[in-house]
């Protein structure tokens, strides 16, 4: 499509699945990307967008002991991040710190603050407290949900409370509600489940199958976006969890991940295994939607699709908005290619 060449590329050495926006870095637009290589030594790349916005360069390159399945940058310290990693047989999660003088070191080593080890289960992801400095962390493995108390200075992490997902339910991911920090959403095979972290009890569930990714609307309370394997993207209002308030068709193959723009209402990115990133403009206004629903027609879906970025060779698993420059997003395809794009031409249209 027309904007195919607008992206700025950056190549990782190996295959990769995860990329994270470095939220705490307020001076630069930076991303952390981790590789997924079973046999080679994995790396974490600290990628920075040049101030001119035309170039991506590697700010830091750190070796990581295992292949990385999930990576999240700490929201309050740009040098801290968490990974979920696997050595091929077992999974683990760790909190890492980038060494202070990494620029001067030859082959800087990551400093492991602590590992979030639990007895059983294949850990899926780590969630940081949504904003600001806080010592709480959540890790989700396929059976349980853990609330951790992290002490960075003492380099310890303690399980504060935990709850199991229930029989026959395998958790796969989650999101922390930025509006109500006591609420966490976790995805499992056929439900979207919600926990109150204060009591560590399940509060409610939404029935939807094969949820792959979930993201809260950063501005509007109660609005939640989910990506599902085959049925596309659903936008939910938690006050009425029976029916999604809007559906977007998603991708030709699986819709892998979905991200709401931190600044612009209704701007949603999704990435899928059909090697494309789609930019949607969805209405999250309930009143608007109810009137629209009456004139229900499939053509409305086409309208909400703003753009398709198809300049990729492989499935895209990593996707993040930049919180510093909210019109910029980075995507990571399986073949290790990071592409940073700007959605500015579409924002003006709003």
């Amino acid at each position: 499509m027309q904007a195919a060449s607008s992206g700025i590329g950056y190549g990782l050495k190996y295959q990769a699945r995860c990329i994270s926006d470095v939220k705490a870095d307020t001076d630069h637009t930076s991303f952390l990307a981790g590789t997924l290589s079973l046999k080679e030594e994995n790396e974490v790349h600290l990628i920075r967008l040049s101030s001119s916005g035309t170039e991506l360069f590697c700010e830091g390159l750190f070796s990581h002991p295992n292949e990385i399945w999930d990576l999240v940058s700490c929201p309050f310290d740009q040098r801290i991040f968490s990974t979920v990693h696997s050595n091929g047989e077992s999974y683990g999660a760790s909190i890492w710190q980038i060494p202070e003088l990494y620029g001067e070191l030859n082959s800087p080593q990551l400093e492991r603050i602590t590992s979030l080890d639990t007895d059983a289960g294949k850990i899926k992801c780590v969630l940081w407290w949504p904003s600001g400095r806080h010592d709480k962390l959540i890790s989700i493995n396929d059976e349980n949900l853990y609330l951790w108390n992290l002490d960075v200075s003492k380099k310890t992490a303690q399980v504060q409370s935990q709850d199991s997902a229930g029989m026959l339910q395998k958790l796969s991911g989650g999101a922390w509600d930025p509006h109500d920090v006591s609420s966490v959403a976790a995805t499992c095979e056929s439900y979207l489940q919600f926990w109150d972290v204060r009591t560590m009890k399940k509060t409610s569930t939404i029935e939807c199958s094969h949820v792959r990714s979930v993201d809260y609307h950063p501005k509007k309370k109660h609005i939640l976006v989910t990506a599902e394997h085959e049925s596309g993207i659903h936008i939910w209002d938690l006050r009425n969890p029976k029916v999604p308030i809007q559906e977007l068709p998603g991708h030709t193959h699986w819709t892998w991940t979905v991200k709401c723009n931190p600044e612009y209402d209704g701007l949603i990115l999704s990435a899928g295994t059909d090697s494309t990133v789609n930019l949607w403009l969805a209405s999250t206004n309930l009143d608007e939607l109810t009137t629209e629903r009456q004139e229900y027609s499939p053509t409305r879906w086409v309208d909400s699709l703003l753009h398709t970025y198809s300049d990729f060779e492989d499935s895209i698993y990593g996707l993040t908005w930049s919180s510093r420059e909210p019109w910029i997003f980075a995507s990571l395809s399986y073949d290790g290619r990071v592409v940073v794009e700007s959605v500015k031409p579409f924002i003006s249209r709003k």
Binding site: H253, W254, D274, S315
Partner: peptide, 8 residues
């Protein structure tokens, strides 16, 4: 599509 899924 099925084979793609298989691959995934």
């Amino acid at each position: 599509l099925c084979l793609k899924s298989l691959q995934e």
